Each structure stands twice: as C-alpha cells, then as structure tokens.
Simulated scan of single mutants.
Amino acid sequence: MAPNRFLHHSHGFEQEKLSHAGRQHPLGLAYPAIIEIRTRAHWSRNPTWIATSWSALRLYGMRWFCDHADACFITRTTWQAPRSVLHARRHGWIRSPEPQQKLMLKSGLDPTVPPLRTAPPELAVASALDSVQRGTHSWWVPKVPGMTPTEVRLIQLADACCRLWDLVPAALLPLIHHYLNSRECRLIARHSDAGSDSPAETSLRLALTGLAEGMVTQHRIFIDNRLISVADIAWPRLKVLVYYDGGHHGERPQWETDNALSRALLQAGYIVLRYTRAELSNLTWIRHNVSAVLQSAQVN
C-alpha cells in the first residue's frame, strides 16, 4: 500500500473492482485500498506532508470519485506523479492567491490520525478539478450529448462539492477561481447545479438541459397541502417529473413504494418518468424519450 506499510487482505478491494479501477486510472494503477487508508499510510512515513486534492476531499466527507484516486499531498519537493501503487502524487507548495494571506491548513479531520494536516476546502476542490481537466484522474461517465467526458466529470465534481458544503455554484466559484483557468470557471458557472444528489443525476440533468423552458431540480410536489415527493428533475408548468432510480430502487420494498408514489402522481395529473442506472448508459435515447413527452405535454 505504501513502502513498508502493508494492508490486511480483508480491507482490500475485490479483484473485479481492482481490474475496473485499473482500466479507468490514467496510469493504469489499481490501488488495493480506499484512499483514506492509503493517505494515512503515506502520512505515517512523511508527517510533514499535507493532504490535498482527492485525499483531502475524502477527509472532508466526499462520497464520490475518491476511492481509486491517487493519494495526494502538498510537499516541499517538486510535483511528482506516482510511479506505482506504492507511491503518492506529490504537489509542490502552493501559496495563497492573496499575498498577505497564508493558507489555513486543517487538522483533526481524520479521527484515526488527528495530527494529519489537510489543505483548506477551496484548494482541495480546485486541485481535484484541475486533475480532472489535466486527465490525471478519471472515472466512468455515460456519454452526454454535446459534452466531452472530461466536461461531464468536472460538472459532476462541482455539483458534488456544492452538495457537500451546501453551496450554490455562484458561491463556490469565488472560493476557487484563483486556482482555475477561465474555461473551467465558465463551464462550472454555466452547467453546475446544487440540486443533483449523485453523479448519475448530474449526467441525467446535463443530457436533458435545453429540451424545454422551466427545467428545475429537486422539485417538491404537494398534494392536498402535503409533501409527497421531491422529483430529481421537473418541468412544473408541464407537470413532467423525472426520477433517477439508483440500485436500491430495485429492491422490492422500495420498488413497491415507488410504484405507489407514481400512481398517486399520475392521479394528480403528473407525467412520471423513471430511469435506472442501466438505462443511463444510453442518454441519447433518454433525451429523445423525454423530449417526445415534453412536446406532447406542451401540445396538450
């Protein structure tokens, strides 16, 4: 896991996950353990290192993207890519964009190793976004019509950061724009939305953007003055609702609950569209399907 640091097999990934991770990693690296364990191992040998980028985001509570990323640290040495799964990605020291302001490092985020210092959130986010743009970290994304995979990943990450810190994109950008180029800032300003609960919902929203006016996320639906549902994506005026059903929606209790909710919404005059993870691999078909429904709703 790190030089002279070993991982018990019970804490490692299954071989299938390792193989998939290796195919997705830009350097073909398949890390045997989740990033926080690798971060602790590297820090135990180098206690002056400061966790940043994906290591820092995981310590701040990011659920997505981090598990198979490089462990990342700010060090006093030059930038260096990992040579193998036993090495971390080293970042050169980055000064605050304000000349008189020092970077406020965080300690105590990891209860297992409280002395581990972590880069501030704005630097961690900007560094992770930059690594996506440069292609030093990637993950599978469905093909979104009109967008590159890198652009989709950037928006997924920006959306997830907004949800993590309860920010709107307009509040996120001033914190990180010093560290990003203008193109990345414009992309986030145009496409990011704090209303996506998962990367899959971000992909779905991006695929449906521009189909009709009035699209919103996390739309609350009341029937008889009672909140009965929050739609992932909606066109309220047309009463068209779109839901992304993750893996747990296939389990029988949740499936029955979803069916009952759909019936109630249909009776109230709504059009309900549900899409699964498997269907997300064909966003072009989903876009055509939703477009046809919206056109029909506008006519009626």
Rank of each mutant, 00 (worst) to 15 (best):
P199L: 07
I221P: 01
E184F: 04
L172I: 04
R252Q: 10
S192E: 01
H191F: 15
C185M: 10
D232Y: 13
I221D: 00
A231I: 01
P199R: 02
P236F: 12
V168C: 07
R226M: 05
T217D: 01
R220G: 01
A171H: 10
D193Y: 13
W165E: 00
L167F: 12
Y244Q: 04
E201F: 10
L167H: 07
M215G: 00
C185S: 08
G246N: 04
V230C: 02
P169R: 02
R190E: 07
L180Q: 05
E251I: 14
A234T: 04
L227P: 03
L172S: 05
P169H: 06
I188L: 12
H178N: 07
W165S: 05
G247L: 14
I233F: 02
A200G: 11
K239C: 08
W165I: 07
Y243C: 00
I223N: 01
L211G: 07
N181F: 12
N225V: 06
H177K: 15
L204G: 04
H178E: 04
L211F: 09
I233P: 02
R190S: 08
K239D: 05
K239E: 03
V242P: 02
L238G: 01
S192I: 06
E184S: 14
P199W: 09
L204T: 01
V230G: 02
L227N: 06
A171E: 11
Y244M: 05
P236Y: 10
L238K: 12
E213A: 14
L172T: 01
A234Y: 10
A207Q: 03
E251S: 13
P174C: 11
N181D: 14
H178L: 06
T209R: 12
A231F: 07
E184C: 14
S192L: 11
I176K: 04
W235Y: 13
L180K: 04
R226Y: 02
D193L: 13
S196K: 14
A200S: 14
L211P: 09
G246S: 06
S203H: 03
